[in-house]
Structure formats: C-alpha cells, structure tokens
Amino acid sequence: MDLYSKEVMKHFRKPQNVGKIKNADGIGKVGNLRCGDIMYLYIKVAKDKKGKEIINDIKFETYGCTVAIANTSLLTTMVKGKTIEEAMKIKKDDLVKKFGGVPFIKIHCSLLAVDALAEAIYDYFKKIGRPISKELEERHEAAEKIGEELKKHHGGLFKVEEELHKEYEK
C-alpha cells in the first residue's frame, strides 16, 4: 500500500521540466511558511499563430516533499504551450483532481504550485509594464510577505541560492 496515488508517484519518480531557464521572461518564487517548502517557476513567453501570448517554455525547481515536487512537475506539463489566460485559470483543485486526490495535509502543496505560476506571470507582466489585475496584485503581496518571513527561517539557503543564481546568469 502506498501513501500517494499512482499519478503523484509518476511525477515524483520522473519529474518533468526540472531546471532553470536562462533569461526567463518571468520567475515565480513562493514558499510555505509552516512546512517550509519552496518552489521556483521559470517561464518563457512567445506568441502563437493567432498572436496570443503562450507559455512557450516552463521549468521548475522545488525544495520540498514528494507532493510538492509532483505538483510543480504536473503543473508545468499542464501549462506548457497554453496561453497565459488559460494557464491562469488552473486552480489547486484541478491539480488535486488530476492526482486522484492527495492526503488532506498535502493540499497546500497544490496551492503553492498555483501560486508559483501566478508569481511568474506577475513577474512577466511587471517586466513588460502591463497593468496588473487587482487579484494578481493581492496574491503577489501575500506571497512576498511569506517570502520575507521565510528568509528569516531559511536564511542560509537563500544566501547559497543567490550566489548560485549570479553564477548562472553570468
């Protein structure tokens, strides 16, 4: 008997789209204050034939449990090639449903993944100077607040990460 569903394990065993994107158009960094998990999402945006913006490439990095890793992997496969509008419509329940359910205590991991995507899109909008909806702004503010708190918790890790990131962008 396994703790998690087959779908969760599929993504955990072989996570899709792991890594960073160089010169990403948007980066979403979120964390959960209670459990301490952290997710990074990188997106590259392009225009499709109809001229609509799509998520051309997406990659993730997750510091967290089985379900956190599986969620980010699943989300990247769901939004890759989709328009930003479509991607924004994905809710945490859609992820949980695709997994065929997760233990109650792990539902926050799905929310975290969805938040990471929202943050990446926010970052993209901000970069190109597009007006940001009130909802997205609020979500960003909440995520930022948590980020500040997390830095107190995980101070050592963020220092390492910043240095690594600098190396990478060179």
Partner: peptide
C-alpha cells in the same frame, strides 16, 4: 543540506529501504 526529508523517505521506499524523518512535511 538543500533537500527535504519526506521526499528522501519516499525515494528510499521506492528502492525498498524503510527509514524516517523529522521534517515538517512528514
């Protein structure tokens, strides 16, 4: 460093090893 314990446990379990962790996630 840099990783979370519950995911170590589940990876170990996939390879037939049973262990335990003090991670918040577990």
């Amino acid at each position: 460093e840099f990783i979370e314990g519950e995911s170590i446990i589940i990876q170990l379990d996939l390879l037939g090893v049973a262990g335990s962790t003090g991670s918040a996630c577990s």
